[in-house]
Design a protein around this nucleic acid. Structure first.
Lengths: 136, 136
DNA sequence: ATAAGAATGCAATACCATTGCAGTCCTGCT
DNA sequence: AGCAGGACTGCAATGGTATTGCATTCTTAT
């Protein structure tokens, strides 16, 4: 049905099933990162496990990245075009302690810093927490 | 038994019980952050719940801070003297993807960055992941 | 010495992530 | 079009961590 969505899946070797298109569409509509529970309540008819595996597939194929915001539940957000989930691609995430939403802040790169000798960097994750603009 | 440890607890309004002194001593000996499981295997005789509540108390009183390193299990590490767990006090944590240990890197402050308008900051957490010096 | 409150230990619960398996759907090939 | 193989989906079940309830024990202040 939606050519653009199908294309996004195909170029990443993900077969565009109805379920996946729906999930992808839902992710694109969201300003904030979604948890498995969020998806589950958005699609009452779909199975929790299927949604879980859909997100896992998306993650493995580089469509979304996982965010651990410390609430206990993992959240997922769409990767930017060209995102390889390498340190230099990553950005800051902001978790609102009031509404519990987690946002990607792609315009803010993570500032560089120096690791101790012989430590090698593979991933990096900067979680900021506080109150978002909508909750003030 | 150990005056210095007792003092550390008392000045933070934590009653220095035997259990707490043992846990505090164990934390001081550790170079890396400890999980509940780590403590549990270090003190086979102690109850998991008691250790959990001990850590929770320590956290509430500002003795330790929690670290979510993305492994699913929360880890805890001693706060520095004067640490209020406010953004400017926090430092980088490093998680080794090989040995699964999580280290505090207190000498590296988190570089400042700009949040969007009307976002207010309360906490901040920078998790770096890779391979530590001992595992290379 | 005693009463109040704190700390401990056992049991039970809740929640999230993950896997196994069987049925269904899709795709490519003949 | 028919068929075989693989991918996807849904249900059930499992594992692990965090958390709470409650009764008992310990500590402290009067």
């Amino acid at each position: 049905m939606n050519e653009a969505l199908e294309h996004k899946l195909k170029i990443r070797q993900v077969r565009p099933t109805a379920m996946r298109l729906l999930v992808l569409e839902a992710l694109e509509k969201q300003a904030s990162a979604v948890s498995l529970q969020d998806l589950e309540s958005a699609f009452e008819k779909a199975d929790r496990i299927t949604l879980y595996r859909t997100l896992k597939t998306f993650q493995e194929k580089g469509l979304v990245h996982r965010i651990e915001d410390g609430t206990g539940a993992t959240k997922y957000a769409l990767c930017e075009v060209g995102c390889e989930c390498a340190p230099e691609d990553l950005h800051v995430h902001f978790h609102c302690n009031n509404c519990q939403q987690t946002f990607c802040l792609p315009k803010i790169g993570i500032p560089a810093f120096q690791l101790p000798n012989n430590f090698s960097l593979q991933e990096i994750n900067l979680m900021a927490k506080g109150i978002c603009a909508a909750c003030r």
